[in-house]
Design a protein around this nucleic acid. Sequence first.
DNA 1: ACTGGCACTCCCGTAGGGTGAGTGCTAGGA
DNA 2: TCCTAGCACTCACCCTACGGGAGTGCCAGT
Lengths: 335, 335
Amino acid sequence: MLDDRKLAVLRAIVTDYVQSHEPVGSRAIVERHNLDVSSATVRNDMAALEEEGYITHPHTSAGRIPTDKGYRLFVDRLAAMKPLTNAEKKAITHFLSGAADIDDIVTRTVRLLAQVTQQVAIMQYPTMGAAVVRRVDLISLHDSRGLLIVVNSLGKVAQRSIDFGSMDEESLTQLRDRLNDALAGLGPSRAAQVLADFSSTVSPEVRPIIHGIVAGVLDILATDQPTRIVVAGINHVSQFSDEFETSIRPVLDTLEEQMVLLKLLGEASAEVTVRIGQENEHANLSTASVVASGYGVDDAWAGLGIVGPTRMDYPSTMASVRAVARYVSRILAEG
Amino acid sequence: MLDDRKLAVLRAIVTDYVQSHEPVGSRAIVERHNLDVSSATVRNDMAALEEEGYITHPHTSAGRIPTDKGYRLFVDRLAAMKPLTNAEKKAITHFLSGAADIDDIVTRTVRLLAQVTQQVAIMQYPTMGAAVVRRVDLISLHDSRGLLIVVNSLGKVAQRSIDFGSMDEESLTQLRDRLNDALAGLGPSRAAQVLADFSSTVSPEVRPIIHGIVAGVLDILATDQPTRIVVAGINHVSQFSDEFETSIRPVLDTLEEQMVLLKLLGEASAEVTVRIGQENEHANLSTASVVASGYGVDDAWAGLGIVGPTRMDYPSTMASVRAVARYVSRILAEG
DNA sequence: ACTGGCACTCCCGTAGGGTGAGTGCTAGGA
DNA sequence: TCCTAGCACTCACCCTACGGGAGTGCCAGT
């Protein structure tokens, strides 16, 4: 059905359209790609490709543009990831190397991703669910207010504001040490079990306070805590089109919805995945593609990726996403 | 020069234009506002207002629109802040009440601000410069890597990744206690002084490691550390216009520039300040107004605000910004 | 000092015609 | 059987023209 030449024609249409943003005609194809056939032959192939649903044309006398199905075929069978240049690799490592803490790593990475792909980048914080508790700390601030801090083995720091009531500094220190002894090295589910019995081991008068603290720790450990998402390169939404209402507006609306973004990155696997146009369930993203990848180390896994118009340079974008995901994973593993 | 009626005409032009987004003519004014004069009289007043530079008209036969100068006069002399409804107040307190930590407070506040003003909201993290050190912690993670954590009296937690070299757990604990004894309760400048002498009091073999830790603490304490800025409600840029290139694009570009945003909020005072159009030095924001306010407690002060089109409802927006700034300040003071 | 009247300006929506890129189809050739 | 050359046809796009209408500026009158 689809012989090699038809595939070559589809490839030509996709690459040319991505570059020019204009419907591409049969003559342009034979001129720019050396197919050694006439434009009439290409027209016949185009008719076949359109019959199969890989391309379409906006009106009778216009050139062809790829459909979602056409992009999908292109990504799956016709495109090889374009390897990064040395300069690009260098830029990535340089940009990420000076990061101080996890916040910094995430911020830098998402900006870098926006920069190299020239698209809107989104990135999920590594979930702390799978890691083990490394340290619990209690710090009184003023009056009866204070802070509960939990650090996990990935270096992620979580905090909750806590009312310490009438507890004095000394018993606070004591409590802290006991919590550390009890929890250090435990995963979240095991820690939750231990905590369940914890408040019964303390004297009754401080029990309500302990209860608050335990609740705080449990809250932090809960794996389904809303993972934070960061976005960068919003200005690159201009890639989508020059018309705001029909094209850009819905994308911006979607980018404000944390839950939707989480879903987009949700099933991030180790490999780069591409969701094209209508393949995104979300209606606002029907003209958008999402290129995503998982990143992280053994038990701290999360997603990052970009959102761009279906009409994008998939080979380069996929390569960039993959490269950034790998580099940031390496940095997480090292530091 | 500007009698009461002319001011009333200006007020009418501003309010009508903000509402309708269309140039407003002399007849519309006498119809919608009961000025008890004819349209011809209003036309004369308009001519005078235009002479003074408060209004202009896009072409000969169009109605009038306010200039930056006109908005400025309106904000300074003609507009009273529109008090919030009870429902709005309730929504604000409800939205902010459940915040767990400082990250959460900032995230919620900036989203709330975007929500109530229907504009793009920006907010600066409270600077930790002015507060005093409350706790220093050292946590080893794996291999020789570890984490340095500094908590200040406002509950703000800062962290740095540190190489602990060959130090064992015990001497780490010892070092931590010594650091806490030395630094607790000190402001950043005093702490820096103490730290300067600190590394000379330890044994030579661990000195390079201590040096790294001290550098980390100093780094955290440095007041000029890049304060983080968060943005919300980007989708509301649609308020600016329906044309992307000339109007929305430059604003989006600007919102990506952390440094520019910092400047916008930089000189935030306790009162609500408005910068209109060209009053913003940044060229990209020449069609934008910034409504900002400081927030915080005694020595932890930062800015928040919104960015919107010059053509905005100043009374309501200013009231909302003020209200949100006050509520979040109160929450910071309490917890 | 205000008002009614009137000529004038210029945006905007609509209609009509020419242009050109691109297609679909058909008949002929390898 | 596959490819090619040629040709009629279709539309989007651009330019122009033109009437309608909103709004102004000005002047004479009260």
